[in-house]
Amino acid sequence: MINPINIGSIDDIDEGEAKVIPSDETGTGEDIAVFHAEDGNFYALNDNCTHETASLADGWIEGTEVECPIHAAKFCLKKGTALCMPATQDARTHKVEVSGNDLLLYPNVPAEPVEA
């Protein structure tokens, strides 16, 4: 059983915004971006775009997708699926849980499958 890390209050991330959890906190060796999507839910992906070096947390959140700020690749926030060129590799998902007012991140635990 992997213990989640408490990454702060749900109020810390406005809808349409994202927050980066640095690699020294995630323990995965990678920064993780936690997104507050426009469906009201929270999702997490590896922050670095799978195409080139870019922070997806700096990208544009539209619905439940994020568009990379640099080359406009899009990823599904729920499944990490690369939705368009120039990205060809999916982004890695991580489970996020809301517990009361707190946001809990489970690094390296894939998000539970959901209906896209």
């Binding site: 195409h51 080139e52 070096t53 870019a54 640099i70 080359h71 120039p86």
Partner: peptide
């Protein structure tokens, strides 16, 4: 796809 930030710095070169 060369990409420049708001300070004009070249940030990404595919």
């Amino acid at each position: 796809g060369w990409s420049f930030d708001l300070a004009g710095a070249l940030q990404s070169v595919p």
